[in-house]
C-alpha cells in the first residue's frame, strides 16, 4: 500500500517528527511503500544539515537522510514554508541571492502541489503535527 506522510512540526520541539519517523520505519518493514514525506509549517526545519544536537541525542535531520538513502524516500520541504523559515537549497540560494544554503542530503524543496499530489496518489494519507 502507498502511504503519504505530512509532517507539520520542527525537530526536537515536538514529538511529531519522531512519531512520523517511527511510523515510516514500521510501514517500510511491513512492506508498504512511502509515496512521499512532505514537510510543512515548522516541519521544514527537519531538513537542515546544520543541526548539531548533543552527542547523546538522536540526530533528526541525519536520521531522515539515512532513511531516505536506504529506502529511496522522497523528502519534500514546502517551498513557501521553507522560504519563510530560511531553509535554502542551491536553487533557492541562487534565485533569492542568498549567501548560503542549508538543506540536508536527500531533501528537496518544492511546491505545495507535491502535497496535494500525494493526497491524490497515495492510498493512505497520515499527518503528524501539533
Amino acid at each position: 500500500m502507498k502511504f503519504g506522510v505530512l509532517i507539520n512540526e520542527g525537530p526536537y520541539q515536538h514529538q511529531a517528527s519522531d512519531s512520523a519517523y517511527k511510523f515510516i520505519e514500521a510501514a517500510i518493514a511491513e512492506g508498504h511503500e512511502i509515496y512521499r514525506v512532505f514537510f510543512y509549517h515548522d516541519g521544514v526545519n527537519n531538513g537542515t544539515r546544520l543541526a548539531t544536537p548533543p552527542q547523546d541525542d538522536r540526530h533528526i535531520p541525519n536520521r531522515w537522510t539515512e532513511l531516505a538513502e536506504k529506502h529511496n524516500l522522497d523528502l519534500v520541504l514546502c517551498v513557501a514554508a521553507a522560504q519563510r523559515r530560511g531553509m535554502v537549497d542551491q536553487g533557492e540560494m541562487e534565485r533569492n541571492k542568498k549567501d548560503a544554503n542549508n538543506i540536508a542530503d536527500k531533501f528537496r524543496i518544492s511546491g505545495l502541489g507535491q502535497l496535494i499530489e500525494a493526497g491524490i496518489q497515495a492510498d493512505r494519507m497520515i499527518t503528524f503535527g501539533d
Binding site: 517511527k22 511510523f23 518493514a29 511491513e30 493512505r124 497520515i126
Partner: peptide, 18 residues
C-alpha cells in the same frame, strides 16, 4: 508501531485530530 501501521492500512481513511 507495527499495529499503528496496520490500523492505518486497515481503515480506508484516517482523520488526525491535531
Amino acid at each position: 508501531y507495527k499495529g499503528f501501521v496496520k490500523l492505518v492500512a486497515d481503515n480506508e481513511k484516517t482523520q488526525n485530530w491535531l
